[in-house]
């Protein structure tokens, strides 16, 4: 036995701790993305929405000196971005793929440009940010405390939002209409509801959630700092999570947790591997490889299921 390193339980709890914090932005964005997915919009532009949210939150917090107002700014701006996205994809009926790509590029350009122009080469670094919360009682429980305590408030808020979104999607009329807007818009129109309107609502809410995800990245995770391109493909990973979960909020959160786990594992492996070679680059690639593997697995499994059901039906007919 080698006793020089940290014990297994310390490593395990810190990995799980990192898993929760790095799953949160992906989960928040995925909660928004599953609405647009239900409404029948292919939303590639989430990455840009997250980036703009991160920028606005950090910029407002730095300018006003209040982290809460920073989040509020990100939410309001998220509404604007959602409206903008819906204007093109719903109203003007542009190609969703093109608009999503353009939105990502626009976000990368605008945030980088204004960060330099308004805040100088240092970038944005807000004094006000969300500090990590130590939860009374829980933090003293040996293993559990290390995992669940000491996160920013966003992590706990996300749990609440997952429940709220599940209820919203599956248990409210609006949620039902949003799903119908994607699945069978003509039926919805016959029922007297406007599918376009549902798409607008989904798109706006998606903007809000992505704004929150961005606000977490800059104000919660990085202590008030905005870094250029800090969304780091999380929007795309969120999109993948939406697909894994068939746009179910609870499953989407699990998918995000899985991404968070491999992200954390990669981070931990960096510390474990003792080598002159920069293996950190390779461990950072792990979550992206896993996403591809998961994507294949989920699609194949869904196909198998469909084939089995078709065979069953065929047998019943015979």
């Amino acid at each position: 036995m080698n006793n020089s390193g940290p014990s297994f339980w310390t490593v395990a709890s810190s990995t799980l701790h990192m898993m929760l914090s790095s799953a949160t932005p992906v989960a928040l964005a995925a909660l928004g993305g599953l609405l647009t997915e239900h409404a029948g919009i292919m939303n590639i532009g989430m990455d840009g929405m997250i980036l703009m949210g991160a920028f606005v939150a950090a910029a407002v917090a730095a300018a006003i000196g209040s982290a809460i107002l920073g989040v509020l700014g990100a939410i309001l701006f998220g509404i604007v971005v959602g409206l903008f996205f819906a204007l093109f994809t719903v109203k003007l009926k542009s190609d969703e793929f093109i608009i999503g790509c353009a939105l990502n590029t626009l976000a990368l350009g605008l945030t980088g440009y204004f960060a330099r122009a308004w805040f100088g080469v240092k970038g944005i670094s807000s004094e006000a940010y969300f500090s990590k919360l130590a939860i009374p009682l829980v933090k003293d429980v040996p293993f559990v405390g290390n995992v669940f305590s000491g996160h920013s408030v966003f992590v706990y808020l996300t749990w609440l939002l997952v429940v709220v979104m599940w209820l919203f999607v599956y248990r409210t009329p609006t949620g039902f209409w949003i799903r119908a807007a994607g699945e069978s818009p003509e039926t919805l129109r016959t029922a007297g509801k406007n599918p376009e309107r549902m798409k607008w609502i989904a798109s706006i809410l998606c903007g809000v959630f992505c704004g929150l995800a961005g606000a977490y990245l800059s104000l919660g995770n990085l202590n008030g700092t905005f870094v250029e391109g800090m969304s780091d493909s999380r929007g795309y990973i969120a999109f993948a999570c939406v697909i894994f979960s068939a746009a179910n909020p609870a499953k989407a959160y699990l998918a995000a947790l899985m991404f968070g786990f491999f992200d954390a594992l990669g981070g931990q492996l960096q510390g474990v591997i003792r080598s002159d070679l920069p293996f950190a680059y390779l461990t950072k690639a792990i979550p992206y490889v896993i996403t591809v593997v998961m994507m294949v697995y989920v699609v194949v499994r869904a196909q198998r299921k469909r084939t089995r059901m078709a065979k069953q039906q065929f047998k019943n007919l015979g």
Binding site: F88, L92, S94, D95, I98, I99, A102, L103, T105, L106, L108, G109, L110, G112, Y113, R116, A117, E228
Partner: peptide, 18 residues
């Protein structure tokens, strides 16, 4: 003006065309 303005230009052209 920093170089990021180029991305803004490209995206705005696409939005204008759309």
């Amino acid at each position: 003006v920093t170089i990021q303005i180029y991305w803004v230009m490209q995206a705005t052209v696409i939005f204008c065309m759309a």
